[in-house]
Every structure is written in C-alpha cells, then in structure tokens.
Amino acid sequence: PVYLSVKADNSMFIGNDPVTDETMITALNALTEGKKDTTIFFRADKTVDYETLMKVMDTLHQAGYLKIGLVG
C-alpha cells in the first residue's frame, strides 16, 4: 500500500520519505510505476486545515490518482 501523510506542521511524507508539493507526484509515479489506479491511503494530522487537505487531494486528482482512501 502507498501512504501519503500530512503532519501537523504541513510536512508531507510518502511512506517515511519526505516530499514537497513539487515532488509529490514524481515520487508517487516512481513508487507506483505510473499505475494511476493504485489506491493512495491519505492520512493527515487532525490539526491540518481543510484547505491544505483539499489542495493535496486536488493535486492527486489532477495527476490521475482517483483512488484515494482516507485513513485516521
């Protein structure tokens, strides 16, 4: 499974590897070998604001990742 996490300080990680807004999709493409039907499990600290969550989800959708599971 692929886990994308947003921490309380808005830092992002794919698994244990830090990513930025600019590198997130490139890292996901490498990890999933470009398979856009891969489910991305998205988790965020409860203090992360809604705007940040939606920005990340919008970026995922624009890149073609449509299977996003929200996890606690």
Rank of each mutant, 00 (worst) to 15 (best):
P1H: 14
M54E: 07
D58F: 12
K35P: 02
I40N: 00
D58I: 12
T32L: 09
F13N: 03
D58K: 14
V71N: 08
V71P: 08
F41S: 03
M12D: 00
I14E: 00
G72D: 12
D49A: 15
A30T: 10
D21T: 15
E22M: 09
V71E: 10
T20V: 03
S11D: 05
T26Q: 13
L60T: 01
D9N: 09
L53T: 05
F42A: 03
M57H: 04
T47D: 15
F42K: 00
K67E: 06
L4Q: 01
H61A: 12
H61D: 03
S5E: 12
D49I: 08
K46L: 09
L66F: 15
E33F: 12
F41T: 04
G72Y: 07
T32F: 06
T32S: 04
A44L: 10
M24P: 01
V2Y: 04
Q62V: 06
T52I: 14
K67I: 12
I40V: 06
T59I: 15
P1A: 11
V2L: 09
V6G: 01
M12W: 06
N29L: 09
L4R: 00
K46R: 10
I14G: 01
Y65A: 00
D17M: 15
K7C: 14
T47V: 08
M57G: 02
M57Q: 04
I68E: 01
E22H: 07
T23P: 01
E22W: 05
D58H: 14
M54D: 05
F13W: 15
K35E: 06
G34C: 07
G64M: 02
T39Y: 14
L60Y: 01
V6K: 02
T39E: 11
A63C: 03
L31R: 09
R43P: 00
A8K: 08
V2M: 05
I14M: 05
A63T: 02
P1L: 09
I14S: 01
V71F: 08
I14A: 03
G72K: 10
K7M: 14
V71D: 09
S5T: 15
T47Y: 12
T38C: 08
D9S: 07
M24V: 08
I68N: 02
T38V: 14
K7L: 14
L28S: 00
A63E: 07
M57C: 08
V19L: 03
T26E: 14
D45R: 02
Y50V: 12
F41L: 13
K35W: 07
L31N: 03
L31F: 08
G15E: 06
L28T: 01
V2D: 01
F13D: 02
D45V: 03
Y3G: 02
G69N: 15
D49Q: 12
P18V: 08
G15S: 03
V48R: 02
G69T: 15
T52F: 15
A30I: 13
K55Q: 07
L70D: 05
T23F: 05
V6N: 01
I68H: 03
A8E: 09
L53K: 06
I14H: 01
V19E: 02
V2W: 03
A44I: 13
I40A: 00
N29A: 07
T23S: 10
Y65P: 00
I25V: 10
L60Q: 00
D9A: 08
M24C: 03
V48P: 03
T23I: 04
Y50N: 10
I14F: 06
L31E: 03
M54V: 11
K7I: 08
G69H: 15
V19R: 01
S5N: 10
L4S: 00
N10C: 09
F41A: 03
V48F: 04
H61I: 13
Y50F: 11
K67R: 12
K35A: 08
K67W: 09
R43M: 14
M24F: 12
D37A: 07
Q62F: 07
V71T: 08
L31H: 08
V2S: 01
K35T: 05
E33C: 11
G34Y: 06
P18M: 11
S5R: 11
T59A: 13
A63W: 05
V56G: 01
T26A: 14
L70Q: 06
D21L: 15
R43G: 05
K46P: 15
Q62N: 12
A8G: 11
A8Q: 07
G15R: 03
N10R: 12
L28V: 04
L4M: 07
V6R: 04
T52Q: 09
K46F: 09
M24N: 00
K55N: 07
K36V: 07
F41G: 02
V6L: 12
K7N: 12
P1T: 11
G15D: 08
V56N: 02
K35V: 07
G64K: 02
L28I: 12
N16P: 08
T47I: 06
I68D: 01
K35L: 06
E22I: 09
K67F: 11
V2G: 01
D9V: 06
Y3L: 09
L60E: 00
V2K: 02
I25H: 02
S11I: 10
V48M: 05
I68K: 02
F42T: 02
P1W: 11
D9C: 06
F42V: 15
A44W: 15
M12S: 01
K67M: 11
N10E: 06
I40M: 02
K36T: 10
E51C: 14
A8H: 09
Y3V: 11
N10H: 12
A30W: 06
L66P: 03
N16L: 09
S5F: 15
M12A: 02
R43T: 12
D9M: 05
K7F: 14
P18S: 08
T47M: 12
A30Y: 10
V71Y: 07
Y3H: 08
T23K: 05
E33N: 14
Y50I: 13
K55A: 08
Y65Q: 00
P1Y: 14
T32Y: 04
D21M: 15
K7G: 09
T52P: 02
D45P: 05
S5I: 15
D49F: 06
K36D: 03
Y3C: 13
F13P: 00
D9K: 08
L66G: 06
P1K: 10
M24W: 07
L70N: 06
L60A: 02
R43V: 15
G69V: 15
P18G: 05
K67V: 12
Y3P: 01
P1I: 11
E51P: 07
A8N: 07
D21R: 14
G34R: 05
G64F: 02
F42R: 00
K46V: 10
K46W: 10
V19A: 02
Q62Y: 07
L60V: 05
R43A: 12
A44M: 10
E51Y: 11
D49S: 15
F41K: 04
D37E: 09
N29S: 06
A63H: 09
L60C: 01
V56P: 00
E51F: 11
D17E: 14
D49P: 15
M54R: 14
F13K: 05
L31I: 10
T32Q: 02
Y50Q: 12
K7D: 07
I25C: 03
D37W: 06
V6Q: 02
I40W: 01
K55S: 07
M54N: 08
M57L: 13
D37K: 05
G72T: 13
P18I: 10
L53N: 02
V56Q: 02
D21I: 15
V48H: 03
D45F: 04
T59E: 06
L70C: 13
E33A: 12
D37M: 07
I68C: 04
L31P: 00
V2R: 02
Y50D: 08
H61R: 15
M54T: 10
M12C: 04
V6Y: 08
T59F: 09
K55M: 08
K36A: 05
I68G: 03
G15W: 04
D9Q: 06
I68V: 13
K35G: 04
T23W: 03
V6W: 07
G34V: 03
V6C: 03
T52R: 13
E33H: 14
L4G: 01
D45K: 02
N16S: 11
M24T: 01
F42L: 15
R43K: 11
E33I: 06
Y65V: 01
G34D: 05
L53W: 08
H61Q: 10
K35I: 07
P1E: 09
E22D: 11
K55H: 10
D37C: 08
N16C: 15
T52S: 06
H61L: 11
D9H: 08
T38Q: 08
F42C: 07
T20H: 04
K7A: 09
V19G: 01
N10M: 13
E33Q: 14
K35N: 14
K7P: 02
S11M: 11
D9E: 06
L31Q: 06
V2N: 01
T39C: 15
L60I: 06
T26N: 11
D49N: 13
D37H: 07
T47H: 13
G69W: 15
H61P: 00
K36E: 04
A27V: 15
L70P: 05
Y3T: 08
K36W: 05
A30P: 01
T47F: 12
L4Y: 01
F13V: 05
G64Q: 02
K36I: 05
T23H: 06
T38K: 06
K46C: 13
D58P: 01
I68P: 01
Y50A: 11
D58C: 11
Y3Q: 05
T26V: 12
A8D: 08
T20W: 03
E22Q: 11
G15T: 02
G72L: 12
F42D: 00
E22A: 12
K55E: 04
T32H: 03
A63Y: 07
V71A: 08
T23G: 07
V56K: 04
V2P: 03
K46S: 12
Q62L: 11
V56W: 07
T39F: 15
L28P: 00
E51M: 12
D45Q: 04
L66A: 06
T26P: 13
V6T: 02
L66S: 10
G72P: 13
T39A: 10
Q62I: 07
G72C: 13
T38R: 08
M54A: 10
F41R: 05
T23R: 04
V2F: 04
T32D: 02
I40T: 00
Y65M: 01
G69R: 15
N10L: 14
A8C: 09
T38H: 06
M57P: 00
A44D: 02
D21K: 13
T59K: 14
T23L: 05
T23A: 06
